[in-house]
Design a protein around this nucleic acid. Sequence first.
DNA 1: AACCTGACGACGC
DNA 2: GGCGTCGCCAGGT
Length: 101
Amino acid sequence: MSSRMQIYEAVRRIPRGRVSTYGDIAKAAGLPGQARQVGYALAALGGETDIPWHRVVNTSGRVSVRTGDRSVEELQRALLRAEGIRFGPADTIDLRRYRHE
DNA sequence: AACCTGACGACGC
DNA sequence: GGCGTCGCCAGGT
């Protein structure tokens, strides 16, 4: 429960126009190796939140696929593009360039 | 208690 | 880079 707060705090630290990965956030939240927990914590956020959930992608530099609802992924890409992040072929982001340490 | 399921990831081919 | 395998762990059946 409290670990979820740690996750949100870490996500909050991602600067605008940059991204981080589930694994990196997990590590930053003191939960190394528990990337999945990050996914669950973000999924638990409703639409109303000030947490920049869209700045979290997987290590492939791509927006993770949700089960069912596919429109959310489009929204995430739109939000990222709005921050100046460019997507390459296959909707891939260049992590070497946008990844936040 | 056993088993299944994910907004994941590292590793070996 | 694609693909299969295994490790991870909270929650729900």
